[in-house]
Amino acid sequence: MTPVTTIVHFSMPVQNADRFLAFWQDDIRPAVERQPGLISGTFHRYLDTDSPFQFVNVAHWENAELLAAALHTSVQEMHDNGIDMFEVMRELGVAVSQNNYTEAVRYQGTAAT
């Protein structure tokens, strides 16, 4: 099975960005980190307040099947703990765009040495 990189863009009203970041760190991240197949991830915050996406999450998974299972299980675990992820995101006006990729070309700059 091929490793997968998922890139998830989050947009929302700018005034809700700090609340969303806290929700992601406190609730979503721990649920995802417990899932089998997660290799690593980095959650990025925008530099420009006019950016259409306030946050971008880039996560690497062992394969697409484990990623799909992890997403389902994470949402279910949060629900079991009394957190409706979709309701919180609706309240904060969060829109999500997720795309999954396999590696095509690896490259490295001179600063990495």
Rank of each mutant, 00 (worst) to 15 (best):
A31R: 02
W24G: 04
V58L: 01
F23Y: 07
F55Y: 02
D50F: 09
L21K: 14
A64R: 06
I28N: 03
A22V: 13
S40K: 11
D48E: 05
N57S: 10
T42R: 13
S40G: 14
L38H: 08
N63G: 09
T42E: 15
L38P: 12
F23P: 00
T73V: 08
R19K: 15
N63P: 05
R34N: 06
A64F: 04
Q35M: 12
W24P: 01
L47G: 10
A64Y: 00
N57F: 12
A70S: 11
F23I: 08
D26A: 13
H72Q: 14
G41Q: 15
E62K: 03
S40N: 13
L38T: 12
Q35K: 07
T49E: 15
L67Q: 03
R34V: 02
L66Q: 11
A22G: 10
L66P: 05
A59Q: 08
V56S: 06
F20E: 05
V56G: 07
F23Q: 09
P36V: 03
V56D: 01
V32E: 06
N57T: 12
F43I: 08
A69E: 14
A68F: 08
H60P: 12
A70M: 07
S40L: 10
T73M: 14
D50W: 04
S74E: 06
A64V: 09
E65A: 15
I28L: 04
H44N: 09
L38S: 02
Q25N: 15
F20A: 07
V75H: 01
Q54Y: 09
L38E: 12
H44Y: 01
V75Y: 05
R34W: 05
V56A: 00
W61V: 03
E62T: 11
A64Q: 09
I28C: 10
V58A: 05
S40P: 04
S74Q: 14
F20L: 00
W61S: 00
W24H: 14
